[in-house]
Amino acid sequence: MNRFHQIVEFVNDLDKRWVFLVVGLAVVTSTIFRLTFPEIPTPMVRSVYEKVESLPEGSRVILPFDYDPASEPELQPMANAFVRLCAERNLKMYFIALWPLGQNMVAGVIDDILQTEYPHLEYGRDYMDFGYKSGNEGVVAVILTDIKKLYTTDAHGTAIDSIPMMAGVRNIRGFDLILTVSAGYPGLKEWIQYAGTPGNIPVAGGCTAVQAPLLYPYYPDQLVGLMGGIKAAAEFEALVAEAYPKFQEDKDRFLTALVRMGPQTVTHLAIIFFIVLGNITFQILRRKRQQEALKR
């Protein structure tokens, strides 16, 4: 075997630690050099944005946060962007969680965004948190007809009847939008099947990139728009920042998805590089084996 084929063999069977090293370097360098790329919003992301923008002030939006820290790096930017846009539009926000740790995610956006950036918004008047309830799609099915049968208090133990923004609200049929952030089951699909479609309530939302292809079939009839992964979140942030220029001032705070797209783009390129490399070496070795077989 000549030197060239030895190198090809080595690359073809490259130890996975070399791959890890290259991916690690791709992430670290792009983070250090703060690489960002412009994002062109796709129609599905634009639909979500336009739906929220089209709601009149005071519209009721239910925000199910069905994810946990495992998918937080991918989903938190879009959750933040949803909340900021709803706050800017003065929409009434009703947070809810079908995942046990979704409640912590809600608490995070209330602390970090609503109470910090929008101190004029008042809990109970402009936003409220139903908290977590077990029962998955069962919870959705019940609140479609009667919220108070399942929720007598909010996440903080306050009686639902004493919360001003619950006055006149019996169920979620009268809500203007279901805007979910979902990482799996129960999530966006269950909100479409058990609330959106039977209750004729518009549903839009975001999910992890791997989940998105399974949800595309609901678009555009049962799903107003869909945002898959950090890329869609970056596109959404670009739309929000264009309409509300104050968000362009501090990228690290307001445009986190756009910032995170830098390392993701470079890592994607590293993966593409490895796929191309693997195929070149594979084809060279296959041709060599075929030639050797012919000689025999």
Partner: peptide, 9 residues
């Protein structure tokens, strides 16, 4: 990300 890269290769 690391495992996806390795598996893709």
């Amino acid at each position: 990300a690391f495992y996806v890269a390795s598996a893709s290769f």
